[in-house]
Design a protein around this nucleic acid. Structure first.
Lengths: 261, 261
DNA sequence: CTTATTTGTTCCATAAAATGGAACCTGAGT
DNA sequence: ACTCAGGTTCCATTTTATGGAACAAATAAG
């Protein structure tokens, strides 16, 4: 094990529930000797990857990481464009909006815009969700061929909810609907009472793909508002698709009221 | 030179103007043999620190970095609190707001909220500014003692603009004004026609300190609006100071119309 | 205030990984 | 087919990491 992978393992320890780590945390989390943990944390701090919290023995990610992390959005400028669209839609409809990327069978939020309503969906950005069981994930999976999806889920999957796809053929049917309708939807899937609508768009030049998503309390949104959200997301995504020449984005789809996908 | 410092050096190569790097970039930027550059980039990608852009030979920061970078805000929860305040003020007044931290003699933006007006100040988050020559920097420097400031600028500094402090005693006078008035201000300093107001607050428990800043076109803001911005920033910062028991934040300061600081 | 106990650091010989020069690919342009 | 810049692989040498144990420091318990 090289020191680089150890350092990355340390970075992966951080989460919203564990904002900083200590030597003993690393010992228990990564099973490394505490001599290594001690030296590694200090080395990472000396290099500027970590900061010590006040004058305690606790370490947290540094501003450097924060800065370079911001660069990701410039590097993947697709994300910035998508974020602008979602920010606008979120602002107008007052519901939470966010954009996600897929990494293998997981999707993770990259940016988020909290809703304005008293009852709003709160997204914890940085958490990973199974792709097949979320609207963002299915919007992105729909850009793959059925064969690629089958290959990705060669080992099958376990549906976390009754409203999730129950098996591969169920998933493929939903993806087919998403391809035909241009959006993916989830309802009571990760969170009960929550509905989400996602549209995916990509940049063939870089290979990046993102999902634009608006998430809202099921009870709060009338059918026509839901259609408006779908339309707004698709319009925004269509503009991006035009910029990037995204062939997988089908602009010629009318918005129809329909069941989940 | 350990591989860790090399990896960090690579991360430091990224900027808004260089969103991705190649092997030859590293050779010229860091002066390393290209064999090392090649292996290092691949290793960093394999570990998940970098991503390849599409199927090119270009490397950019990964989502992992982005994710961990987000964690910084949770770890330094002061930043999150300050961001909420600035977001609110920015939203209401329609001008650009951001929050910054100081690292030595430099300040760098951590979060930003673009203004709503057609004429707005655009901040490039991630860029470093000299602390003495910005309102955010002076707001933060004002939290140090004069001796500490002198020690920090033992080698002096070069004023980038006629409206910047011209020497140490000039700077100390401005800091004194900031301590007395509770805010720092800049005018035509980094950018001509731009004015900015900053208030700093800290968390003694962690040692973190941040500056809350609203930046706007000089011509657009009437005296009473400027006072309102100062009041809003100070009110927000005061709430945070109350939470963190920040002794350096002086709550007992009236807002008076005054010249720059 | 003293003694356990938990947590963090330093030391050292061994094991593992990085280094950098040169040879070798690869692909775009001529 | 040739050239050339950019990228990768190879290998003996040098440098760095490893992990167990002794040591130090901080914290909790008596």
């Amino acid at each position: 094990m090289t020191i680089l992978s150890a350092a990355v393992a340390v970075l992966r320890c951080f989460s919203t529930t564990r904002p900083d780590v200590t030597v003993t945390d690393l010992v228990s989390l990564l099973g490394m000797p505490k001599s290594n943990a001690s030296r590694l944390l200090r080395a990472m701090r000396d290099e500027g990857l970590l900061e010590t919290v006040g004058d305690t023995k606790r370490y947290r990610p540094s501003v450097l990481i924060n800065q370079v992390g911001q660069m990701y959005r410039y590097a993947a400028s697709l994300i910035d464009r998508a974020d602008t669209v979602v920010a606008g839609v979120s602002e107008d409809v007052g519901h939470t909006g966010y954009i996600s990327v897929r990494r293998g069978t997981e999707v993770l939020g990259v940016t988020a815009h909290a809703g304005k309503h008293a009852l709003r969906v709160v997204t914890t950005i940085g958490d990973r969700l199974p792709a097949f069981a979320s609207s963002t994930g299915r919007a992105l999976l729909a850009r793959l061929s059925d064969d690629d999806v089958r290959a990705l889920y060669a080992n099958g999957f376990t549906p976390p909810s009754v409203t999730s796809p129950q098996d591969i053929s169920d998933l493929l049917a939903r993806l087919a609907f998403t391809r035909a309708s241009g959006y993916a939807e989830s309802r009571n899937e990760a969170v009960s009472g929550v509905r989400a609508i996602s549209v995916a768009v990509g940049d063939p030049a870089t290979g990046d793909e993102v999902a634009l998503c608006i998430s809202f309390p099921d009870a709060m949104v009338a059918p026509e508002e839901r259609l408006a959200i779908i339309r707004r997301l698709r319009e925004g995504a269509a503009e991006i698709a035009a910029l990037t020449n995204d062939a997988l984005f089908n602009t010629a789809i009318p918005v129809i009221a329909e069941e989940n996908s």
